[in-house]
Write a protein that binds this DNA or RNA. Structure first.
Length: 163
DNA sequence: GCCAACGTTGGC
DNA sequence: GCCAACGTTGGC
């Protein structure tokens, strides 16, 4: 069997939080608006139905991985690229050869203990995680299965003592 | 093809 | 609000 890939997506909770995803119909949303080629390539070429997805809150207080989701539908064209009124409109994209693709993401579970960026930085086994690399801005990024397991395990055990 | 200027992301 | 890092654009 081919190994299930793991991913991490970023969202600003003020725009779309994990709770928003849990409240969405079928706990599912289309991951539209990604306008970065590398992130697009991951979605278009590599994300498969059932792949696990970590949900990260950026520009938040605190910034943290807050939930687990999965790929519910594989890549299809993002309709907003063709909508002149959308902030994601791309006049250069052609209908018969769409530039931008998206997948559907479905919530699986909220983490009992969100893992903050600070905690992630102090967790053994995550030293090479893309999210923790300096200047890493990718909104859709790969996570190794080992990293995924470390994160889920850390989120299910007691929160690090605050005092 | 190079690279400077600009816009955006995202932590702090 | 600041600023470092990155991606994209466009002149040449």
């Amino acid at each position: 069997m081919s190994a299930t890939r793991c991913w991490l997506v970023k969202s600003e909770p003020g725009a779309f939080s994990f709770d928003d995803l849990l409240a969405a119909p079928k706990k599912t949303t289309s991951w539209n608006g990604v306008r970065n080629y590398l992130a697009r390539n991951y979605m278009r070429d590599l994300m498969k139905k059932g792949d696990k997805v970590l949900f990260y809150h950026s520009n938040a207080d605190p910034t943290a991985i807050v939930g687990v989701a999965e790929v519910a539908r594989e890549a299809y064209p993002d309709p907003e690229q063709f909508d002149p009124k959308s902030e994601y409109h791309d006049p250069k994209s052609k209908k018969d050869a769409p530039t931008w693709m998206m997948v559907d993401i479905k919530a699986v579970k909220k983490l009992k203990h969100p893992l903050t960026l600070a905690e992630l930085k102090g967790t053994k086994g995550l030293e090479k995680m893309v999210l923790l690399q300096k200047g890493s801005r990718l909104s859709v990024q790969p996570v190794t299965p080992a990293e995924f397991d470390v994160i889920v395990a850390a989120a299910s055990t007691a929160r690090s003592p605050a005092r």
